[in-house]
Design a protein around this nucleic acid. Structure first.
Lengths: 243, 243
DNA sequence: GTTATAAAGTGTAAAAGACACACTAACTTA
DNA sequence: TAAGTTAGTGTGTCTTTTACACTTTATAAC
């Protein structure tokens, strides 16, 4: 039994950030623009999940929160670790070294990434015309292009986990504005689960949850019957299970 | 934004190995005996989850399989990644350096661990009177002592995950011998879920699964009516969901 | 071989939950 | 005031889950 000290390993955290615009489930992706390197191809553009190498004194959770904050200035966002990706060649096999360095990746090292998924109310973050080298964009989940490294695998797994979690935990609300209608909520569920739901049965189920609270307010500016607005109260005692 | 290259990080894999003896859920734990270090306490004994630092060219999954194999000689065992633990002080804060070195941990480095849980048919591995410095023992889940590092947290999370998975996937069989009775299976479920189940309803549910196949064989050597034996076929098409 | 012991094995009825289904109400704009 | 559009609501059927008790079949002891 020989045990290498694996000083060649770096840890990164990648975040699969979900948003919802009322119609489509979206991912927040980063345009990574390579600086022109003279004799190489004029400009290489690579798209990736937001992520970063972990800092020295930082926990994984803190690193994920930092990545999200540096990108969007948002704090207190729903953020959950879901898997660690550690194939030895997930980074360095694939691409030439210049390209890797643009991600601050040292091609001599292995990178293990711990992946988080995050649920963001899309209104809370509108990407700016970027002054940086890299800029973020919301992208339809349908239209996710080929991503850097194994980021497509990571995103796929995140979607599977999200789908799973949506049916067991009440996390859908994290993707909607503070005030929302039941139709919006239903559309969200239908989009993520990729199937039609029955309106009446859906509403029956939702109204069983004590956490969904009707407001004294209606939707405005729509050209049809305005809908009741609701809010979600994370702290309401759901179905009071004691013992 | 400063980005440290975190060359101080090591990756380890820890395995929470579950077994079942017909009565109790068990964990496979390692006795880590410290060599006597002269003027320090005569012998320090520390108990831990089996685990190891990841080797250079190794994937996380491969590392977990290797840990399990080096310990038990078993291969092809049910093994599943469930969480990565990365608090900056999960290792080095706690103990003195001699102690750490006995785990091959360099106290100057951080260790991120990726945790797997594993389901083993207990008969397949009977711990040997150990010739090594460390030896493995099956321990009742009730009686798990204080473990090294944050291994109690890891074990607790593994149990929670196991409980969860048991209700959604058919993994209980991994803990039983090839041939088992329905009573054994029920006891297993009752032990893990920590609640009584109704015999008739339980059997109805099990018999819905096409994967549970009755054998032409009965339990032997019991002083009462012998039970029908069954085996579990991972590959039987369960409930034939097409479309 | 009769009896005591111990777990195996089996069905049904009631309750709860899931599902299918169609019309009226309320607002906006032309 | 009529047309367009989405909101909002209840009931019956079917499926699933739950609660519940007695008979069978082996062994061991007498």
């Amino acid at each position: 039994m020989t045990h290498l000290t694996n000083s060649q390993v770096d840890i990164s955290v990648d975040c699969v950030v979900f948003g919802f615009d009322g119609e489509q489930l979206k991912l927040l992706l980063i345009d990574q623009k390579l600086p022109e390197t003279g004799n190489l191809s004029p400009e290489v553009l690579q798209i990736a999940l937001p992520g970063d190498l972990m800092n020295a004194g930082e926990s994984l959770d803190a690193c994920a929160a930092r990545v999200l904050k540096e990108l969007t200035s948002l704090e207190g966002i729903y953020l959950k670790q879901f898997y660690a990706f550690g194939d030895p060649n997930r980074v360095s096999d694939l691409k030439d070294q210049e390209w890797l360095r643009s991600f601050r990746v040292n091609p001599e090292r292995r990178v293990i990434t711990v992946a988080y998924y995050s649920l963001v109310k899309m209104d809370d973050y509108v990407p700016q015309a970027s002054s940086f080298a890299s800029s973020a964009k919301w992208t339809d989940i349908q239209d996710v292009p080929e991503l850097a490294f194994d980021h497509n695998d990571i995103a796929d797994k995140a979607i599977a986990v999200l789908r799973q979690e949506l049916t067991t935990k009440h996390i859908g609300f994290e993707l909607l504005p503070e005030k929302f209608t039941l139709s919006q909520l239903q559309t969200l569920y239908e989009t993520i689960l990729d199937k039609k739901l029955d309106k009446r049965n859906f509403r029956k189920n939702i109204k069983k949850m004590d956490q969904v609270i009707p407001l004294d307010e209606k939707q405005q500016g729509v050209l049809h019957k305005p809908a009741q607005l609701f809010r979600f109260d994370r702290d309401a005692n759901e179905n009071v299970k004691e013992e």
